[in-house]
């Protein structure tokens, strides 16, 4: 536990002092600022069934696919390439402590980015809202959306860490993460679009499709519905990816 704590503080400190992290943060906030601004504009033109905050969270896949891989790609690939990972593993710190520390530090940065995004709806509400009307800030959608991205983010960051574990190239790690996250995000929708009802032999797909509907989970979280199934999915996915990362790290010979 001591090794985990030491490594977590070190990783978080390095991430927060790194120019790369600040560049990624700038990209994230620019993207999310633009998305939110367009959502506000769209809502101001004509009545919409969603609030600007809900509309912004529906596009959570943009930072997920284009920003998160930039955060996770260097966790292991860079250190494997430079040889510092092998040096780290000659200390009594276990591979599990190393993996969990890097994972949690990256997730913390991801959470901080989303926490910074929360300022946009708050500022919009403060500058443009009318007293008593909370639709611009929409705190329910904001807190629900944040709960979703942070919970699903556990698994998404773990996927990125696993991809970074299996290669020495940060670029390849980012590409692998992008493709895997794209698959995971789109899987539910793709399975949903299959004609499951008309083809009986595909009936078994109904259940997994129901479990994997990422956008459905977002809607549930944003509307305050607490369903344990997505929580189990994201937590088991996280543990699976981190377990595989530990095995990959222990199996590596340098």
């Amino acid at each position: 536990m001591r090794h985990f704590r030491v490594l977590y503080v070190h990783e978080l400190r390095c991430a927060l002092l790194s120019g790369g992290t600040w560049s990624v943060a700038a990209l994230f906030l620019t993207l999310m600022g633009a998305v939110h601004w367009f959502a506000v504009l769209e809502c101001s033109r004509a009545p919409t069934p969603w609030t600007p905050t809900e509309g912004t969270f529906r596009l959570f896949w943009i930072p997920l696919l284009f920003v998160l891989p930039l955060l996770t790609m260097r966790t292991f690939a860079e250190e494997r390439r430079s040889g510092t990972l092998a040096a780290l593993l000659t200390t009594p710190a276990s591979a599990a402590a190393v993996v969990w520390a890097k994972f949690l530090a990256t997730w913390t940065v991801w959470a901080l980015l989303w926490a910074a995004f929360a300022a946009f709806p708050a500022l919009t509400e403060q500058r443009m809202g009318t007293p008593g009307d909370l639709r611009l800030g929409d705190p329910v959608a904001l807190w629900g959306g944040l709960a979703f991205v942070l919970t699903s983010g556990l698994m998404h960051v773990a996927v990125g860490v696993l991809c970074s574990c299996v290669t020495r190239s940060p670029t390849l790690a980012a590409l692998l993460t992008f493709v895997t996250l794209l698959g995971l995000t789109a899987a539910g929708g793709a399975l949903d679009s299959l004609p499951v009802e008309s083809w009986e032999w595909m009936g078994w797909l109904r259940e997994p499709a129901d479990h994997l509907r990422t956008f459905g989970h977002l809607q549930d979280f944003a509307s305050g519905v607490m369903d344990s199934r997505p929580l189990v999915l994201y937590l088991t996915g996280t543990l699976l990816c981190l377990g595989l990362s530990v095995l990959a790290l222990e199996g590596q010979e340098s």
């Binding site: 430079s82 092998a86 040096a87």
Partner: peptide
């Protein structure tokens, strides 16, 4: 180790 890898930053 050989080449003594160290974190540059």
């Amino acid at each position: 180790p050989e080449n003594n890898p160290l974190p540059e930053d």
